[in-house]
Design a protein around this nucleic acid. Sequence first.
DNA 1: GTTTCTGCAAAACCTTTGCAGCTAG
DNA 2: CTAGCTGCAAAGGTTTTGCAGAAAC
Lengths: 137, 137
Amino acid sequence: MTSTEPGLPEGTRPTRQRRAVVAALGRQDEFRSAQEIHEVLREEGDRVGLATVYRTLQALAAGEDVDVLRGEDGETRYRLCSGSHHHHLVCRDCGRAVEVEGPAVERWADAVAREHGFDEVSHTVELVGRCGDCRPG
Amino acid sequence: MTSTEPGLPEGTRPTRQRRAVVAALGRQDEFRSAQEIHEVLREEGDRVGLATVYRTLQALAAGEDVDVLRGEDGETRYRLCSGSHHHHLVCRDCGRAVEVEGPAVERWADAVAREHGFDEVSHTVELVGRCGDCRPG
DNA sequence: GTTTCTGCAAAACCTTTGCAGCTAG
DNA sequence: CTAGCTGCAAAGGTTTTGCAGAAAC
C-alpha cells in the first residue's frame, strides 16, 4: 500500500521538489511546459532540477492528475485538471484558457466510434480562437 | 498571380523534390512523419534531402493542404486531406485512421466559443480508439 | 540574370538517461 | 541501512538554419 500525499504522483515519496512542482503547477491558470514550471520555481528561488521537473510532470500525467497538451512549438504542456472530463477553449493571442464541458461531443465521439467498429475510444478536443480582450479594433 | 501546380504548396516553384514529396504523401493511407516520407523516397531511389522534406511538409501544412497530427513520441505526422473539413478516428494499435465528418461538433464549437466571447475559432478533434481488427479475443 | 530551392552539415530544441551523492522511510 | 529521488551533464531525437551551388523563371 503506497500512502502518497494528495496531489503528488501516486506511489512516490513526498519530497520537497515534488511538492514544489505540484504547488507551482497548481498556481498556474493555463497550461505550462516543464521548462516554464522550472522557470517559475527558479524565480521563486526554489531550486529544482529541470530533469526533476520533467520526471514529476511525467509521473503526474501517468496518474492522470494533469491534462496534457502538445503545443505547436513541440513543447508538452501540463495543467492540473479538476477531475471531470472537459475540454479547453484557448485564446491564440494571450493564451487564456477556459474549461468547457461538452456532453454533446462525448456522445458524438462514442457514436462515431461505434459506427466504425472502434472500441475504447478517448477523444481530444481543442478549441483555439481569439478572446474578447485580444480582438483588434 | 502565382501559378502553382495543383497539389504543390501554394506560391512555390514546382521542383522534382516537391513533386516527389507530395506524390509520396499521396500514396500513404495513414499519417506519416517527415522522416518516414524521407525514408519512403529513399527506398524508391528518389533522392530528396531530409531538410527539403521538412520544408515541403511545412509549406503544405501552412496552406492547409494536409492534416497535421502531433504524435505522443514527439514526431509530427502529415496526411493529405480531401478538401472539406473533417476529423480523424485513429486506431491506437495499428494506426489505421478513418476520416469522419462532424457537423455536430462544428456547431458545438462555434456555440461554445461565442458563448465565451471568443472569435475566429478553429478546432481540433482527435478520436483515438481500438479498431475491430485489433480488438483482443 | 535573378530569385528561389536544395543539400549538407551544424545548430537549436525539447526531453531522456546514467550515475554519484543525498534523502525518506 | 535500503530503496528511491535529485542534480548535473551528456546523450538522444526531431526539427531548423546557414550557406554555397543548382535549378526555375
